[in-house]
Design a protein around this nucleic acid. Sequence first.
DNA 1: AGCGTGACGGTCG
DNA 2: ACGACCGCCACGC
Length: 106
Amino acid sequence: MGNFARQVLEIVARIPEGKVTTYGVIARALGNPRGARVVVWALWSGPSGLELPYHRVVNSKGQLAPPHIFGEGVQRECLLREGVTFLPDGRVDLERHLWIPEIEEP
DNA sequence: AGCGTGACGGTCG
DNA sequence: ACGACCGCCACGC
């Protein structure tokens, strides 16, 4: 796993309960503004056993990952359980729950 | 050394 | 507002 991917996972590990962040935000925090897709790759390659809150990462519109990733409705339920609220159209209410990590890179 | 692959994001019609 | 398009970056083959 590359260095970037490791840093991605470090950030994911720090997303507070009841909060979410986005692929793009993580990429920017790591100084790679156009690296959103690499963040995706990092999540794929990350350890599945470890208790990382992968479900707290959504896209820039607040939409959840497609069902085949976590299973139908699973991601949504995890977030609901943690107190995340959704808009009528099913997107996460980013206004309230978006979490921006502190800048990492030196 | 290409080339295909994304759980993406912004821009434009 | 919404979809279609296109650029993006690291990685594995």
